[in-house]
Design a binder for these strands. Structure first.
Length: 889
RNA sequence: GCGGGAGUGGCCGAGUUUGGUCAAAGGCGUAGGUCUCAGAAACCUAUGGCUUAGUGCCUUCGUGGGUUCGAAUCCCACCUCCCGCACCA
């Protein structure tokens, strides 16, 4: 709507959210994580950001000096990966850009990584401004190169960590493309291979004379049940020297993979695998001799391309032996050894499941994978090792697996080895391997550091409460973190300039940087020394005023990485008084019940919404759907039209003269005032809890209350209509600030939260009484089989009865006791629930007196009030305090 | 598997901390009505079943038990669904 847009523009030009030190005012410092700017800000960002924004606005109403800054994240690989994809002519990335309204002619420019930053940051700022975000933009920065003060700040932080011995060098497994010499993260993979991680297994060395048959396995504990070895009969194998030993390996990528895991590998010559078939090799643990047999299911590109066969516990092995069906295979089946006891299965679970699933051949991959998964997981968690395991016997597999494997390694019968579950290729078209690389780690496993972090968590507040335990668990489970990568944007690592500090690791304490960011803009690089930052973060006035962080608002995706990191780094770098105070976490945003994604086509940039709708409407929609739990929030985007109308009609209503100047205040007026005051108080709690949904509910509830007020009073009081305009606007100011600012300006209200001292519950009680009475009369009328009603008699119970009932209530009896007492006193069974309708006789009388006229009009007949002791009606006796008898004649 | 969250009426969704006006807010939908040339919108009424002078009963909050005078709410067991388990922002 045009008018809303104009109003928004007006206020966005007037507003100024530059926050400055003011010792007289209490401060409140809120942050939202720095979004990564490889695309437009979308509704997911808006939903979480708005939680910070709403609270910031609320705190300002309450008189706080609020700082809400916003920077942008440019560190990491997504942009670099996108640039690569673009250069290699990937249509999908072009499409993504077009979808985000990038001009087709502009696409070329995105082949330069910096252009992404130059393009999307102004768009992000524009989106936030149009959203009406109350941000101090002077403090905005980015995390990479032109922003020297920030990269120097990161460097300062890591130097401090290094001095405290919290970073160290080590080895780390990664998925790697050897041809392009790169770590292959999700961004460097075709979509179908995203999320595939390497598997950790073992190579067990079986001996054939003086050379080794290396078998790769994920289940070293089944070594005791090996009946044979499998090779792929169509595979090409080589004799290879590995760390001085002679191994048989397939002529595939697995050789490169072994090499990549720091083994000396040298190919000696080809070997005809057929010449090895049926030869017997020695099980290094049991010294048993088992034959090498041909198969087709063994993948020569995984592990070592050779596996050991345990037909009792591995469906593949069992069915392959059945397939082979020769004398030796039959013998192997006879030699099956049962290793684990597993409830619900025979001695040979593999055979059970193959027969149950009717698997007929080793080619039946789909069923075999399922069967294998079933047996693996059940045996791992519930399988009990049999006597054959010696000192490992009688335990669950999961308990002894690692111990058993470690013994094999110690005895040099096996080595650890990682491989991929399927041999996929990178975006660059080459097959990937698992590689062991030198890495730098942040030493999060350091117990002393963890304890400090946990101490910090203890004194923090979390929204919702469940999140606290999650964070504690995350901290306890935290392992060392590889924190430098190559070929990404970011801050160079000062100990090794080839490497860059990756994006989760450079954004740990930057909230502190906000406090000084604007004053460092023109600081020469040479001045940004360690001493300079040391001084800054101990003595600086702004830092000491704004810090600590009062609230961080974040999506739940950061629960297990960024948020614990933030805590770890704060406790390492800053004094206790500067540790963060609170974290609010919310679920992800679903659009009409679906996850938002570019490929699904339901990716909605903030700017797109604001092109058509007002910011207030969007903010309202997000507040309405916001949850104060870790659950995902479902945004029904279609509702925004209706919201837009509601906002406009509220605005129109506010500007209209409404109500009469009344000389006398009625009970119903006081009731309405009480309702409004109560709403105000309730909303305070909602805001403090970041429960914006309930604020919205309150907004709707007030409308219903107002309608009731109109209905009940017939002539509304202008004074209270004005108060209604004010309160109903005020409670949603943080959510829809533009329109409320306009309303307040037009009506000449002061924009400030109203502190309500007391809420007189009696007015609410009286009105509830009236509501019940009206309901009751309606029911009676409906049921009365009287053609023409002349009169309604309302018979109020006697004072005597009322005082008896009051005594029962005041003596705070249990339900049962109250019931007994009531039946004793009134000689009949009375449901104690009626006590909740109790109203003092005086109030009852006043209420009836004031509302008699209303009741007459409402029901169109004469209404009279009688007292129980004076009434001749039989039903008079049934009257109760708060629930008079009703007789229609 | 571990950890977290969740299962409520035709649908969406509150209520669960602190058991009792909870046959369960609010919204959507549906049916009837008012208004209109008509439609849309808006407003009113109804919306588990059977009853009824303002009532009572039955069935119902994933399933099955339990505690209690009383359970959507507390306890136990089970079933189902969603999310996270890292080098990636």
């Amino acid at each position: 709507m045009d008018s809303l847009k104009k109003i928004e523009e007006k206020w966005q030009n007037i507003w100024n959210f530059e926050a400055n030190v003011d010792e007289k005012l209490k401060k409140f410092f809120i942050t939202f994580p720095i979004p990564y700017v490889n695309g437009l800000l979308h509704l997911g960002h808006a939903a979480t950001f708005c939680r910070a924004e709403f609270l910031a606005r609320y705190k300002r109403l309450k008189g706080f000096n609020v700082l809400l800054p916003q920077a942008f994240h440019t560190t990491g690989s997504p942009i670099m990966a996108a640039v690569y994809r673009l250069k290699s002519g990937d249509k999908k990335i072009v499409n993504d850009l077009l979808m985000q309204h990038v001009d087709e002619k502009e696409i070329e420019k995105f082949k330069n990584a910096n252009y992404w930053v130059d393009y999307f940051i102004p768009k992000a700022v524009e989106a936030l401004k149009k959203l009406g975000a109350s941000i101090d933009f002077r403090r905005t920065f980015i995390t990479t190169d032109p922003e020297k003060s920030f990269t120097k700040f990161v460097e300062w932080q890591y130097k401090k960590l290094a001095k405290k011995d919290l970073i160290k060098k080590g080895k780390h497994h990664v998925v790697y493309d050897l041809k392009v010499d790169k770590v292959i993260g999700d961004h460097d993979r075709p979509d179908e291979f995203v999320d595939i991680s390497y598997v950790e297994g073992y190579i067990i060395k079986f001996y054939l004379e003086d050379f080794i048959i290396p078998c790769f396995t994920l289940r070293p504990e089944t070594l005791l049940g090996v009946t044979n070895i499998w090779v792929n009969k169509d595979g090409e194998y080589l004799l290879v020297k590995v760390d001085g030993e002679k191994w048989i390996l397939p002529n595939t990528i697995v050789i490169d993979e072994i090499k990549a895991q720091e083994h000396m590998v040298e190919v000696i010559n080809k070997i005809d695998i057929k010449s090895l078939l049926y030869k017997r090799v020695k099980n290094p643990y049991t010294n048993e001799e088992v034959p090498i047999l041909p198969s087709t299911f063994v993948d020569t590109e995984i592990g070592t391309g050779i596996v050991m066969s345990v037909p009792s516990h591995a469906p593949y092995d069992y069915i392959a032996l059945i397939d082979l069906n020769d004398e030796i295979a039959k013998k192997c089946l006879q030699n099956m050894k049962s290793l684990f006891a597993l409830e619900g299965y025979s001695e040979y679970p593999a055979r059970d499941v193959v027969e149950r699933m009717k698997i007929t051949s080793q080619k039946d991959k789909e069923k075999l994978e399922k069967a294998t998964e079933e047996i693996y997981s059940k045996e791992f968690y519930y399988g009990i090792t049999k006597v054959i395991f010696g000192k490992f016997a009688g335990k669950r597999v999961c308990e002894i697996k690692d111990e058993f494997a470690n013994e094999l390694i110690k005895k040099r019968l096996a080595i650890k080895h990682c491989t991929l579950p399927i041999r996929f290729h990178s975006r660059y078209g080459n097959k990937c391997v698992v590689r062991l690389i030198d890495q730098w780690f942040i030493n999060y496993s350091n117990q002393g550091w963890k304890n400090l972090a946990l101490e910090c968590v203890e004194q923090m507040i979390f929204y919702p409460k469940e999140a606290k335990n999650e964070i504690i668990r995350a901290i306890k489970n935290m392992r060392d973190w590889a924190f430098v990568h190559k070929d990404i944007l970011g801050t160079r690592f000062f100990l090794d300039k080839e490497w860059f500090i990756e994006s989760l690791s450079d954004s740990t304490i930057y909230m502190a940087f906000y406090t000084v960011a604007h004053s460092l803009k023109n600081c020469g690089e040479e001045n940004l020394t360690e001493e300079f930052f040391d001084e800054l973060f101990s003595k600086d006035k702004e830092f000491n005023y704004w810090y600590p962080l009062d609230l961080r608002v974040s999506g739940k995706d950061l629960l297990y990485n960024h948020l614990p990191f933030m805590i770890f780094h704060h406790v390492a770098i800053f004094d206790r008084k500067h540790w963060p105070k609170a974290i609010a976490i919310n679920g992800h945003v679903l659009i009409n019940g679906e996850k938002m994604s570019k490929s699904k086509g339901n990716f909605i940039p903030i700017l797109d919404v604001l092109k058509k709708y007002s910011s207030d409407s969007l903010r309202f929609l997000l507040a309405m759907n916001s949850y104060s739990s870790l659950n995902d929030m479902n945004v029904e985007i279609g509702k925004i039209d209706k919201i837009e109308e509601e906002i406009v009609s509220w605005y129109d209503f506010c500007l209209k003269e409404f109500g009469n100047d009344l000389k006398k205040e009625r009970m119903i007026d006081k009731w309405f005032e009480t309702v409004l005051n109560k709403a105000l108080k309730e909303c305070e709690v909602f805001y403090e809890e970041l429960d914006f949904r309930n604020v919205i509910n309150k907004w709707y509830e007030l409308e219903r209350m107002f309608n009731w007020y109109l209905k009940r009073c017939k002539t509304p009081s202008k004074k209270y209509v004005e108060y209604y305009k004010k309160i109903r606007s005020l409670i949603v100011y943080p959510i829809i600030p533009h329109i409320v600012s306009e309303i307040f300006e037009k009506l000449n209200f002061e924009l400030k939260w109203i502190e309500v001292s007391k809420v007189d519950e009696n007015y609410l009680k009286v009105e509830k009484y009236m509501e019940n009475l009206i309901e009751d009369i309606k029911s009676v009328l409906k049921l009365a089989k009287i053609e023409k009603i002349e009169k309604i008699k309302i018979i109020v119970c006697s004072r005597e009865k009322a005082s008896i009932v009051k005594r029962i209530i005041e003596s705070n009896l249990s339900y049962e006791e109250a019931k007994r007492e009531l039946s004793r006193l009134f000689k009949t069974n009375i449901n104690p629930e009626i006590l909740q309708r109790f109203v003092e006789t005086e109030l009852e009388e006043v209420a009836l007196k004031e509302n008699l006229e209303f009741l007459r009009e409402e029901f169109g007949v004469e209404v009279v009030v009688e007292k129980e002791e004076e009434s001749k009606e039989e039903k008079a006796k049934k009257s109760f305090p708060g629930k008079p008898s009703i007789v229609v004649v």
